[in-house]
Write a protein that binds this DNA or RNA. Structure first.
Lengths: 232, 232
DNA sequence: CAAGTATTGTGAATGAGTACACAATTACAG
DNA sequence: CTGTAATTGTGTACTCATTCACAATACTTG
């Protein structure tokens, strides 16, 4: 038994070791950039974007610079171009298919959430082990038998799976998914899982988040960086 | 405009500066301990518990030791006792009320999830601004008008709120909740929010998680610690 | 009761991540 | 065409987090 935790760690990219936290920030940058793009803004300086995202400008520049040199030294960063660059890095230029395990309450909520596609993900495959759900169409997708997962995953070349099912037998499912080529898992089930070699499991325990907040509500937080008076 | 990010930061506790990451691990420890407790195990050594949770034993001992001295030097840690200690630290000895903003798909899913109570949280208050929802009973709770939130929050002494609504006007809601005594927010809405002074916002962006996984699936991850051959 | 064994808690060393500060560079105004 | 102002990318310093390694301690066994 081995827990899949928020292993901070690093990623190997073009010979460099890049902190996972940097990768997480890329998402935020991209999201804010989309916003600016929508407002018709074409160029943005590191200190502006940094302020929106609440990091230091140095942090932002280093994050981006670790993937290449994208800024114009005097105009700043081209918004549209940077969005494309980040999308390429994150692998969301084209919408990629994602598998969902579990068509319960949470699963159905995820299926009916429209926001994934515009961020580059489509929950195309739904699996369950409940005979009363298998075969039924849920939010436009036909629910498949979890036992038939392997071939379906391979056919569609699925690389990412979301786990929103019961904890029983979950390790077996993860193993077989990994066997079928799935590289990364987002797991909403509070279970102790072992990530098969070459795969990554991101745990999402909402109760744990609440526990953290509960603790923070009772004790004073020292922000990493002293907050400037916000102009908000 | 200021983004509420995963500010790593530290917490002030009994004069010590404690990393937030330590606090997050406490939840995991507690969860695994509950498991062991259920199995009737009374004592556990740091290296055992550490193996389950996938941290080093030194990490585990330091995490716990930063809050006090709980281990018996030769029997290890008393499982039941440690659970109580952690619950006290996390503030989940008694079930505490939590407010939910937004009775949409996600909100209803959270309401019908039974796992919160056993972790010490009860989603007692539900708010929405949709007249067709206000007054209706959803999963046993009557949905209240978001405009009446302030008094309800104060009456129930709510310290934590979950945000699962539309992004429009969310900052205003956060501000008024903070005014009414809410100290911590768990936000599922991909918006840029400014945490009022003395409050903490935990962002939960599922699409961002998928983007991270997408990146990781394409690039090799260096685990922080070399995995020992697992006995799983 | 003494010797042996194994564990906790922690000072010190290491490693990772962030912020500072500036050289190099570009734009632009006069 | 030159001077001025402002930005990026990055070497360096620093802070924070993790791991090492061991002294202090408690239990067990002979």
């Amino acid at each position: 038994m081995r827990g899949a935790q928020k292993q901070s760690g690093t990623v190997q990219f073009a010979g460099k070791r890049i902190p996972l936290q940097t990768v997480e920030r890329l998402s935020t940058y991209r999201r804010v950039l989309e916003d600016l793009h929508g407002q018709g803004i074409q160029y943005v300086y590191s200190h502006q974007l940094a302020e929106y995202v609440d990091v230091t400008s140095a942090q932002l520049r280093r994050d981006l610079a670790s993937f290449g040199s994208f800024g114009n030294i005097s105009r700043g960063y081209n918004v549209g171009q940077l969005i494309n660059t980040l999308s390429e890095l994150l692998g969301t230029v084209t919408v990629q298919p994602v598998a969902l395990v579990g068509a319960g309450n949470l699963g159905r909520t995820l299926l009916s959430y429209g926001g994934f596609v515009e961020r580059g993900f489509a929950l195309d495959l739904v699996f369950d082990n409940d005979p009363s759900k298998i075969g039924r169409v849920i939010a436009g997708r036909r629910c498949l038998d979890i036992r038939d997962a392997a071939t379906a995953l391979r056919d569609r070349q699925i690389g990412i799976a979301i786990l929103a099912c019961q904890p029983q037998g979950l390790q077996t499912i993860v193993n077989s998914f990994a066997e079928a080529g799935v590289r990364a898992f987002l797991c909403f089930v509070p279970a102790i899982l072992n990530a098969p070699p070459g795969t990554f499991i991101e745990m999402e325990d909402i109760s744990a988040k609440l526990e953290k907040l509960s603790f923070l509500g009772k004790n004073r937080v020292n922000p990493r960086r002293e907050l400037k008076a916000s102009g908000f």
